[in-house]
Simulated assay, not measured.
Amino acid sequence: MKLKKLFAGVVAAAMIATMSFPAFAARPTPNVGANGLVTITKNYKVVGSEEKKAPAETFNFTVTPGATVNGAEKTVEKSEATTIPAMAANSDEKTVAFTALTEDGTGTFTVDVANLNITKPGIYYYTVTETPSNTAGVDYAADPMIMVITAGYADDGEDSTLSYWVGLHDSKEFNNKNKPFENTYTAGSLKVTKKVTGSLGNKDKKFNIDVTFTAPAGKTVKSTITYVNNGEKSIAPAAWTLNTTTNQYEATVTVELAHKGFVQFNNIPKDVTYIVEEQDYSREEYTATYEDSKSGTIANDVKSTTITNQRGDDTIDTGVILDNAPYTLMLAVVAGGAMTLVSK
């Protein structure tokens, strides 16, 4: 009995002791390696209709000391350093280059902790921001990333070298960690179809059609638009010229289409506008009408328009009188003669 009481007392004392002292989580292993590099990921998505192909693009980023976390300005915390150190010269600009892509791609860039000039333990805040460019069809990452660097010691040994831990946070949802930067290239298509109607419409005749594309304001088209018309053809980035009146870039091509022919332009960046205009054939007595819309804005699908050329109607001289007026007159004469005979 005495042993049981003694054992119970020891257990109770142990429980009280464990409750009296706070529990400390194990110190995590530094996630910034010996090379001191923090790796940040960039995803480049390619979406849209047929034969989409994102142009080669270099994305630019800037790293700046300080960040806004849940509405509060942060620089350095829990440190003897009263201000966040200035970064090494020319270390704040970062780039990620992509070649032309037909499907999603991933790239990375690194931040060297040595360039942050951290010399004292503490928690340091940085903002990583993508610099928007002007490539038509590309959506750039609107929200920056918050990089939190914790400088401290990996263990309580003799080594006095600082170790580093990094946390990468979404600027809008701080608890959302390691979300990559994302960019999206979106392209669509335009299909133009030709119809010829009327008794005198020449279905073998090829009609010239002008198609004009206009880039969104402030944007430059770096994509190559492809189409097939009398062979494979394309509209290269160099084909776009600046309209000094609208201050927007334009490209115009002329295609030939006969009855039931069509041409489809692919890999047109989203938000590019188009106008389809057939050349004037009124002297040849053709009347052109447009189904759907002769103008519009490219999205991520296939836009279409059909041009119908009408010439001639259903009045054709066959040598046979089809009008019933003469027969009506003849019947009237016969009826009149009959009435005369009856009256006599």
Rank of each mutant, 00 (worst) to 15 (best):
Lys2Val: 14
Gly9Lys: 03
Gly9Val: 02
Ala13Pro: 06
Ala17Lys: 04
Ala17Ser: 07
Met19Gly: 11
Ser20Val: 10
Phe21Leu: 11
Thr29Asp: 03
Pro30Thr: 01
Asn31Trp: 00
Ala34Lys: 09
Asn35Met: 14
Thr39Trp: 02
Asn43Arg: 01
Gly48Met: 14
Pro55Glu: 11
Glu57Leu: 13
Thr58Arg: 15
Phe59Thr: 04
Val63Asp: 15
Thr64Cys: 08
Gly66Thr: 02
Gly66Cys: 08
Val69Trp: 00
Asn70Leu: 05
Thr75Met: 10
Val76Pro: 09
Glu77Cys: 02
Ala81Phe: 05
Ala81Gln: 15
Met87Thr: 03
Val96Asn: 01
Val96Arg: 00
Val96Thr: 07
Ala97Trp: 02
Phe98Ala: 01
Leu101Ala: 06
Ala114Val: 09
Asn117Glu: 10
Gly122Pro: 12
Ile123Asn: 05
Thr127Phe: 07
Val128Met: 08
Glu130Tyr: 03
Thr131Val: 11
Thr131Trp: 14
Asn134Glu: 04
Met145Arg: 14
Ile146Ala: 00
Met147Ala: 03
Ala154Met: 15
Asp155Asn: 12
Gly167Val: 04
His169Met: 07
Asp170Cys: 06
Glu173Pro: 00
Asn175Ser: 08
Asn175Val: 03
Asn176Glu: 09
Asn183Trp: 14
Tyr185Glu: 12
Ser189Thr: 05
Leu190Met: 01
Lys191Arg: 08
Val192Cys: 06
Val192Ile: 13
Val192Phe: 06
Thr193Gln: 09
Leu200Ile: 08
Ile209Leu: 08
Asp210His: 09
Val211Thr: 07
Pro216Asp: 08
Gly218Pro: 12
Lys219Glu: 10
Thr220Glu: 07
Tyr227Asn: 01
Asn230Val: 11
Asn230Thr: 06
Gly231Leu: 12
Glu232His: 07
Ala238Val: 00
Trp240Cys: 00
Trp240Phe: 01
Leu242Pro: 00
Thr244Gln: 03
Glu250Met: 09
Val253Arg: 00
Leu257Asn: 14
Val263Gly: 14
Asn266Lys: 04
Lys270Tyr: 07
Lys270Leu: 09
Thr273Phe: 02
Ile275Arg: 13
Glu278Ala: 05
Gln279Cys: 10
Gln279His: 07
Ser282Val: 05
Ser282Asp: 06
Glu284Cys: 05
Ser293Leu: 12
Ile298Gly: 05
Ile298Val: 15
Ile307Glu: 09
Gln310His: 02
Arg311Asp: 14
Asp314Phe: 06
Thr315Gly: 10
Ile316Asp: 04
Asn324Thr: 10
Val333Pro: 14
Val334Ile: 14
Gly337Gln: 15
Leu341Thr: 09
Ser343His: 13
Ser343Met: 11
